[in-house]
Nucleic acid binder design. Structure first.
Length: 265
DNA sequence: AAGTATCCCAACCGCCGATAG
DNA sequence: TCTATCGGCGGTTGGGATACT
């Protein structure tokens, strides 16, 4: 026979995740890693299906997620990649470390699509909707909207669609604007520092401040705490490596955050 | 201030290829 | 080889937040 079902769906919770649920999931994964999504909710004490846990982790709780709005450079790159790959969001997202396919998809559907239509470019084909109109109108309309260079030329270069294009390593940088905006809007540096200490990088920006105060699971304690569900010794090593990478990732992000705080403060 | 429209995004749905049994 | 599930993906939507009248 085939595999066992993912979940029995009976009594499973749906809808928005609560702080407690997030806490349980993050705590469990930091301690045990990800082996089988189907078993995670049961072992973590969650009334959710594995699929829902996976989605929540990937799109929201992963420590290496980048927060903040997408920069113009990122937006430009999304447009270029979309011209090459179409709606293959996971493929596009792979060029943006710390960004999720869902985030990029949402950004495309809510903003970029609109922006392209405004300047008469079909977001599906990446070609001018009305060729004649665009031969009459000057390119500076497009320039004003900061579109990628290949839209500023008269003809669209078909070679952009070629799959065999060199896979450029993304010149990725944290959105300075986001940090600048935070600081210019009476951003509370003390609170920020405090929340960094409680691993807020893993956490949802929708968390209330009070709730954030109560989150005490640090990455250090996660490494040292007993991991009841890990058995073989060789798995301990790989788990330790995984934990180390998560931890170093969180530390790197923290350093990056502090760098920009100092720079713009 | 209240009602309505629009925007935004987290989460769900359903499909599909890979794979366990 | 076949069947059924898992994991991953893209499309869609519900509802909170914000803007507008």
């Amino acid at each position: 026979m085939g595999r066992q079902p993912c979940c029995d769906r009976v009594g499973l919770k749906r809808g928005p995740w609560t702080i407690e649920e997030d806490h349980k999931l993050v705590h469990f994964i930091l301690n045990n890693g990800i082996q089988c999504w189907r078993t995670i909710p049961k072992l973590a004490g969650l009334q959710r299906c594995g699929k829902s846990c996976r989605l929540r982790w990937i799109n929201y709780l992963r420590p290496d997620l980048k927060r903040g709005a997408l920069s113009e450079a990122e937006e430009d790159q999304i447009i270029e990649l979309h011209a090459r790959f179409g709606n293959r969001w996971s493929k596009i997202a792979s060029h943006f470390p710390g960004r999720t396919d869902n985030e990029i998809k949402n950004h495309w559907n809510t903003r970029i699509k609109k922006k392209l239509k405004q300047v008469g470019i079909d977001p599906l084909t990446h070609k001018p909707i009305d060729q004649e109109k665009y031969q009459q109108e000057p390119d500076d309309t497009i320039m004003e909207l900061n579109l990628p260079n290949h839209y500023k030329t008269e003809t669209y270069d078909k070679s952009n669609e070629a799959e065999n294009c060199t896979e450029n390593a993304t010149d990725f940088s944290v959105s300075n604007n986001a940090y600048h905006n935070m600081l210019s809007e009476n951003f509370d540096v003390d609170l920020w520092n405090k929340s960094c200490k409680t691993m807020s990088n893993c956490y949802s920006p929708t968390l209330s401040l009070e709730a954030e105060e109560s989150i005490k699971f640090s990455t250090v304690s996660a490494v040292t705490e007993s991991s009841s569900n890990i058995a073989p010794a060789e798995e301990q090593d790989s788990l330790q490596q995984w934990m180390d990478s998560i931890f170093s990732c969180a530390v790197n992000q923290l350093e990056e955050d502090l760098f920009f705080l100092r720079k713009y403060n």
